[in-house]
Simulated scan of single mutants.
Amino acid sequence: MRIVMFYHSIISDWNHGNAHFLRGIVTELLGRGHQVEVYEPKEGWSLTNLLREQGEIAIRQFRRMYPLLDSKQYVAERLNLDQIFEGADLVIVHEWNDHEVVRKIGEHRKRNGYYHLLFHDTHHRSVTDYDSMNAYDLSGYDGVLAYGTKIRDIYLKSGWTKRGWVWHEAADIQVFQPHSPMDYAGDVVWIGNWGDDERSEEICEFFVEPVKRLKLKGMVYGVRYPEKALKLLEKAGIEYGGWLPNFDVPKVFNRYRLTMHIPRRPYASALPGIPTIRPFEALACGIPLISAPWSDCDRLFTAGEDLLYAEDGFHMERQMKAVLDQPLKTEQMVNHGLKTIRERHTCSHRVDELLRICTELGMDTSLPRNRKIGGKG
């Protein structure tokens, strides 16, 4: 197939977790012989912040890691959709796009029925910013890919779409895989952004305080940490490493004895069944994982066999101690988690799911024909 994707960014993962999944999906599609083009807004928020903080070296690192991946930057007012969609079979538009861009693409689809059009939601705004999501005009779209059953059901119940499919994120196991054993740099690492009011309290309860009480050697990577957060980490004896390219995460996981997942509050309280992408990536790397509470109602993992859960900060402390003190049991859990990812939750599995959805829509999912697609926005 010839596939066009409108996303916030494939180049930058600065406070932009969707880039992780997008890179894996595009890599998988290209590897199967499909043609894919990704469009992202010129001077998008994530890329602008990455360049401001890290400079051009971050872009060069991305290109070395993903030589086959790239994007075409567009200015919304200058989009030539006739040229961009020429010969397209499938167009996917992510929900981080501007409302007007989403509307324009939908109107183009109404006038030109030769391709199918899907909207992709990987965020919590359907419950935290309902009015904004309600303002999207999806009348020209064939349906919605939602990364959780709860979000899909919100779209259907709200009348935003007539068709919706659950399309969870997953691990790109070409990048996220266990590395050869090496000396540990510390006991526990957490990789995540501060999250403002969405999980600042949870970071303290489930990470900072247990590490402090157990006197463990801890490390944090992420962005948007205010001065008060940095002082909190310093007081607890936890190092802060700043931004970490996502493709370097497996090497970091390999140097620590455990990690944890701390979901943002909307996922823990209002959107059950959505772990976001970090647990998939951690389990794929073979590092023991302990998670703060979230409801796995979509049955992605098996508690106690793939990962451990902690009900509160003191329970997290006990779970950390158990992982560190019981290496054989921990190894069994790691192996089970790795098996679960490889059997159910890779980007290859998600591409299979996407192609089944395309078939359901009546599409021909065979490899590209000799038609040209593209153009600059």
Results as ranks from 00 to 15, higher is better:
Ser9Trp: 06
His16Thr: 00
His20Asn: 12
Phe21Tyr: 14
Leu22Asp: 00
Ile25Arg: 07
Leu29Cys: 05
Glu37Pro: 04
Tyr39Arg: 11
Glu43Pro: 01
Ser46Lys: 07
Leu47Thr: 11
Thr48Arg: 15
Leu51Thr: 01
Gln54Pro: 02
Gln54His: 01
Ala58Met: 04
Gln61Tyr: 04
Arg63Met: 11
Met65Gly: 00
Leu68His: 10
Leu68Val: 11
Lys72Asn: 09
Tyr74Leu: 11
Val75His: 05
Ala76Ile: 02
Gln83His: 06
Phe85Gln: 07
Val91Arg: 02
Ile92Leu: 13
Glu95Gln: 11
Trp96Gln: 08
Asp98Arg: 12
Val102Leu: 07
Arg109Pro: 05
Asn112Ala: 12
Gly113Val: 14
Tyr114Gly: 06
Leu117Pro: 02
His120Gly: 00
Thr122Pro: 00
His123Gln: 13
His124Ala: 14
Ser126Glu: 08
Val127Met: 07
Val127Gly: 00
Thr128Asp: 06
Asp131Ala: 11
Ser132Arg: 10
Asn134Leu: 12
Tyr136Arg: 09
Gly143Arg: 06
Ala146Thr: 02
Gly148His: 02
Gly148Lys: 03
Arg152Val: 00
Lys157Gln: 13
Ser158Ala: 15
Arg163Ile: 09
Val175Arg: 05
Val175Phe: 03
Phe176Ile: 15
Phe176Glu: 06
Pro178Ile: 02
Tyr184Leu: 15
Asp187Phe: 00
Ile191Leu: 09
Gly195Arg: 08
Glu202Thr: 05
Cys204Ala: 10
Phe206Ser: 08
Val208Gln: 03
Val223Cys: 11
Pro226Trp: 08
Glu227Arg: 15
Lys228Ile: 08
Lys231Val: 13
Leu232Gln: 10
Ile238Glu: 02
Glu239Gly: 10
Asn246Cys: 09
Phe247Gly: 03
Pro250Gly: 02
Val252Pro: 00
Arg257Thr: 09
Met260Glu: 05
Ala268Lys: 13
Ala270Trp: 13
Ile277His: 05
Glu281Lys: 10
Cys285Ile: 05
Gly286Val: 04
Leu289Ala: 04
Ser295Cys: 06
Thr302Lys: 14
Tyr309Arg: 11
Ala310Lys: 11
Ala310Arg: 14
Phe314Glu: 14
Glu317Phe: 09
Asp325Ile: 00
Gln326Glu: 06
Lys329Trp: 01
Lys329Val: 01
Lys329Met: 07
Asn335Lys: 15
Arg344His: 14
Arg350Lys: 15
Val351Lys: 05
Leu354Lys: 02
Leu355Cys: 08
Arg356Phe: 07
Ile357Phe: 07
Thr365Cys: 14
Ile373Tyr: 03
